[in-house]
């Protein structure tokens, strides 16, 4: 099941601005996972990528707020594009 998930998903860092995505899984330690969760970013949550400059820093719109996800975090969040 895990492998199936992984083939369908891509790291958030690769998602261009304007796309809405759903989190498939987050490959990080407890600290980062919890910090992201407290911002509303965890498995199954969906959000829109508002800005991606390609340097690993993104701004995403989630639950009516904007969150900056820096390099180091954006490579560890694996997402699937929503239609």
């Amino acid at each position: 099941m895990q492998t199936n998930k992984e083939t369908q998903s891509m790291p958030l860092i690769q998602v261009p601005a304007g796309k809405t995505v759903e989190v498939v899984f987050i490959d990080a330690g407890h600290g980062l996972k919890n910090r992201l969760a407290s911002m509303g970013v965890l498995s199954h949550s969906t959000f829109k990528v508002l800005r991606n400059e390609g340097a690993g820093r993104l701004i995403v719109g989630i639950k009516n707020s904007k969150v900056v996800i820096g390099r180091g975090a954006s490579g560890k969040i694996f997402v699937r594009e929503c239609e």
Binding site: L36, M39, I59, S65, V67, V68, A73
Partner: peptide, 12 residues
């Protein structure tokens, strides 16, 4: 120590 990855809210 782990440099906490940059995750930050942009307040309205």
């Amino acid at each position: 120590g782990e440099s906490v990855p940059f995750v930050m809210e942009l307040p309205p």
